[in-house]
């Protein structure tokens, strides 16, 4: 039973970390970055493999993280310098890097068998069995420590840089007018996004990352009136989704990660329905337009 407990803790951590970074990315309209990094890491995996000549997990992780960071940075650069719209810059970068990765694999056909599904993407359900040891003492699952570290880093970043990040997610122009270095904080965000994404791919798999960046943040955005409310709301929503998802997975005997995503989706639907209901019942009372450009 302790396995299920570990899975719960790890999923809560992964949910919280991705919900935090996801909230910032949602406000910046580049939440598809998570999905993009999940594709572009292929290039990093192949490069790390070809350069080091080993399929050592640490090497793979390093290669993936570096290329994840590179693609996040390049995307940001294309958007700011080249004035390419966010989604297009994300797409151009990840398809290009992925294609380069496939070309490298094909070119070394006899020597390389790399597939992100096999060497990088972890499986939430198996995390409790992959434990770390100091000497002979079992100190708990590797994924737990990994995600704990990432979550702590994210909280540290938010504590230290809440004001610049707040200004940046509100609008880059606004941030620049306050004398905040847009390039610097965008780079910090890119580093954290790619670190969170790759650490979570490794721990719990890609689909949970893409979903937990987008779903809880948008659920929170339905009601949140400030960045602080949104961050807290997103973490709460991700925790609810994890609990609901575990129950769903147990009931259906199905993939836990997928069930958590579905639960998070149901939660968003619930929040949207509640909002619509509230708006209808108080339509005469007042209208609350949310800032939203099409």
């Amino acid at each position: 039973m302790s396995e299920i407990l570990w899975i719960l803790v790890i999923a809560l951590l992964a949910g919280a970390a991705n919900a935090l970074i996801g909230s910032l990315l949602v406000l910046q309209r580049r939440v598809m970055l998570g999905d993009a990094i999940s594709h572009s890491v292929l290039f990093g995996l192949v490069l790390a493999y070809l350069l080091s000549g080993s399929r050592d997990p640490l090497m793979m992780f390093g290669g993936a993280a570096l290329i994840g960071l590179f693609s996040a940075w390049l995307t940001d650069l294309l958007h700011r310098l080249g004035r390419v719209q966010h989604d297009a810059s994300i797409g151009v970068v990840f398809t290009f890097l992925f294609a380069l990765g496939v070309i490298l694999i094909a070119g070394h056909a006899d020597q390389v068998d790399i597939d992100p599904d096999c060497v990088l993407h972890g499986e939430l359900a198996l995390t409790p069995f992959d434990t770390l040891h100091i000497g002979d003492t079992d100190i708990g699952p590797r994924a737990f420590w990994q995600l704990l570290g990432v979550t702590a880093l994210l909280l540290l970043m938010l504590a230290v840089a809440y004001r610049p990040l707040h200004a940046l997610t509100f609008s880059a122009v606004h941030a620049a007018s306050l004398g905040i270095s847009v390039a610097l904080w965008n780079t910090v965000l890119a580093v954290m996004a790619s670190l969170t994404a790759v650490a979570s791919f490794d721990a719990v798999g890609a689909i949970l990352v893409v979903a937990m960046m987008a779903l809880p943040a948008n659920t929170a955005l339905v009601f949140a009136r400030s960045l602080q409310q949104m961050l807290i709301g997103a973490v709460l929503a991700s925790a609810l989704a994890v609990l609901g998802g575990l129950a769903l997975a147990a009931w259906l005997d199905a993939s836990i990660a997928a069930a958590i995503v579905v639960a998070a989706g149901l939660l968003l639907a619930l929040a949207l329905a509640l909002k619509a209901f509230l708006r209808r019942s108080s339509a005469a009372h007042r209208e609350t337009p949310r800032s939203q450009s099409a």
Partner: peptide, 30 residues
Amino acid sequence: LTRRARLRQDSALAIVLSLFFALGILQLTW
């Protein structure tokens, strides 16, 4: 999601992508 619920385009894309894919995996495990 974008027209009625007024979500941002990229959010709607990420949501639909992950939700549908997760439904597919649920069905695969079944």
